[in-house]
Structure formats: C-alpha cells, structure tokens
C-alpha cells in the first residue's frame, strides 16, 4: 500500500523506524528537539525518544559535529542535523579531518558510523551565504559517502540506508522540497547507496541530474516531449560513489548527454561525470557532453538575479538542442 507523504515526513519516518530498532542511534543539532526542527523534520521525536536521544545543541557546529564524531568512535550512531549545509563549513574540519579519516589513519581500529544531514543549495532569496551547494566538496573526499534526495520515496529509502551504513554519510536535502508530497509505501524498504535511478527512460538524449534540480529536469522532459524529443532522465541519488555505469549504459543507447546541477561549474559533479564518460563511452557520443549549472558567481538577493543564476527549463532545453544539433 502506498500513501502520500511530505519529504519531511518521509525523513522523520526513516529516523523514527531506525531509532526504534537501534538504541545507539541519536539525533543531535540546533533546534531538533524542543522546537521540533527548524524545518519540522524532527517533529514529535523528542516526545517519543526523550532528551537523551534527541539533543538540542547551542549554535556551535564545529563543537557538536566533533562531539558526534567522538561518540561514533566510541560505539554510538549519531545523526547530526545541520540547519543548512552552509553552516557545515564551520564544522568541515571535523567532517573531513576526523570522520572521513578515522578508519584509514587508525588502520581500521576505529570507524565512524554516522550521518550528517540537512538542506543544501539555494532556497529563494536567501542571499549569498545561505545559497550554496557543497555536494562536490564532500564528494571529493575519500572516506565519505554523499547522498542527495529528490523525492519522498528516495528520501526515506536512502536515509534508512545511510543510517545503517557503517561509514560517515553526508545526506543532503532541500528547504524548498520538505513540503513536497510523493508516494511512499507503508511497508519497509531500503534504497542502496551508490545506485542511480532511471526516473524516465527515453531514446534520444540522456539527462543526468540529482537533488532539487530533478524537479526542473522533469519539467524540461515534458517540454522536450512536446518538441518530439524522448529524453531519458537519470537521478544520481548518490554523488559519492557515483553510479557511472548507469549513465554510460544510457549514453550507449541515446548517444547524447547533458548534466544538470545546482552548483558552481568548476570541479563540479558535472565536470567529473563528463571526464568519466569521455573515458567510458567516447565512441558512443554523437556530440560533446553539455552541462547546465548555476552561474559562476555568489548568488545575490534580487529575484531577477536568482532567476538568472539558477538552471531552468529553458537552459536545459537549449542544452539538449545543442547536443542534438537542432
């Protein structure tokens, strides 16, 4: 049986189910307990699990990220909520230098089974410091896994897998998507990390994306269909590791590929995929891969500038036209 859940509800269900099953899992972060979550993801969790397992922190990301890494080294399984990943930058030392390194530099003596989760990317007119994507920053670092949800179904299935994973997982959400509703089965399911999802199959062109941009891509796929173009749409779901094979197989079928990413272009996930596809399926490509990213600037406040900054349907359609030489 499927019912519709908001993404925030799907995330909450994932945490609740896992926390009921394993007493060593706890949720920690700013406003997660008494306030029920800055975006209400953790609504009701304090009531069910108590203050031992749903822990409000002061505004001290470096401190509570590090405390959580220490707890993970000593047998617990923390879920660390960043109110946004923009704030994770003051904690990034503990993510990169501690969590991601512990297994390797201790020769396997200690490991960090934990999740760092929270929203990524822009969410309207929030200005330059609250509108950034660091998926590629974290994806660059060995020792981490990086997941980006795009709907309520994968929100739940991926978060459950992330919580059960024995490595540190960066789990990225979106402020603008918490209220979106999608079908979610009643029965338990997991979505494995590291596997892309072919959201719509098609014959003419491969569109690769992830996260909030999947919504824009879905609209673009409809617009392309109206022009008679049958696009295949791939949701990466995990950006470390990346499921290169699913992309390559798709290109072997369509011979054309564009990548849509909410992030600055240099050294992005799209650059990485372009390189790997040039290695794996160069002979199958009928055109150079194109990408649609955010503009290469900090995001300003004015609505006209937000529109000019973000990938949109028009730019995606243009990129498809370009790789199809139309």
């Amino acid at each position: 049986m499927a019912r519709e859940l908001q993404i925030r509800e799907a995330l909450r269900e994932a945490m609740n189910e896992e926390m009921r099953a394993d007493e060593n899992i706890f949720l920690i972060g700013e406003e997660v307990a008494e306030y029920n979550g800055a975006y209400k993801v953790s609504q009701g969790m304090l009531e069910e699990f108590g203050e031992k397992r749903v822990i409000d922190t002061p505004i001290a990301e470096l401190g509570f990220a590090g405390i959580s890494v220490g707890a993970a080294m000593n047998g617990l399984r923390p879920i660390v909520e960043f109110m946004t990943f923009n704030f994770s930058l003051v904690a990034i030392d503990q993510v990169i230098n501690s969590a991601a390194k512990m297994n390797s530099m201790s020769g396997g003596e200690f490991f960090c089974p934990m999740v760092f989760r929270g929203p990524t990317g822009s969410a309207g007119q929030l200005g330059a410091q609250h509108s950034q994507n660091f998926e590629n920053w974290y994806a660059n670092c060995p020792g981490l896994k990086v997941v980006v949800l795009s709907n309520a179904y994968n929100a739940k299935g991926l978060l459950k897998s992330a919580i059960r994973d024995n490595d540190p997982v960066i789990f990225m959400e979106s402020e603008q998507m918490y209220g979106l509703k999608h079908e979610v089965p009643e029965e338990e399911y997991l979505i494995p990390l590291g596997q892309a999802n072919i959201q719509k199959s098609g014959e003419d062109v491969t569109i690769v994306s992830f996260g909030k941009m999947m919504r824009v891509c879905e609209e673009a796929v409809v617009a392309l269909a109206e022009k008679g173009i049958d696009a295949e749409l791939i949701d990466l779901q995990t950006v470390r590791p990346i499921d290169y094979k699913t992309i390559a197989d798709s290109i072997i079928k369509t011979n054309r590929c564009i990548i849509v990413e909410e992030a600055w272009p240099l050294a992005s996930i799209s650059s990485e995929i372009s390189y790997m596809m040039s290695q794996m399926v160069f002979d199958h490509l009928d055109a150079p891969i194109k990408r649609v990213t955010t503009r290469d600037v900090p995001l300003p406040y004015a609505p006209t500038l937000v529109d000019a900054f973000l990938p949109n349907v028009e730019r995606i359609v243009q990129a498809v036209d370009a790789v199809m030489y139309r």
């Binding site: 470096l62 220490g70 993970a72 080294m73 000593n74 617990l76 503990q94």
Partner: peptide, 14 residues
C-alpha cells in the same frame, strides 16, 4: 577536544 567530549558522551549514554 570535541572528540574527547563525544567519547565521554558515549560513556554517559551507555
């Protein structure tokens, strides 16, 4: 320093 506090948190938790 935060790692040490986190190790202690786990002892308290358990």
């Amino acid at each position: 320093i935060p790692l040490g506090a986190g190790i202690a948190l786990a002892e308290q938790y358990k």
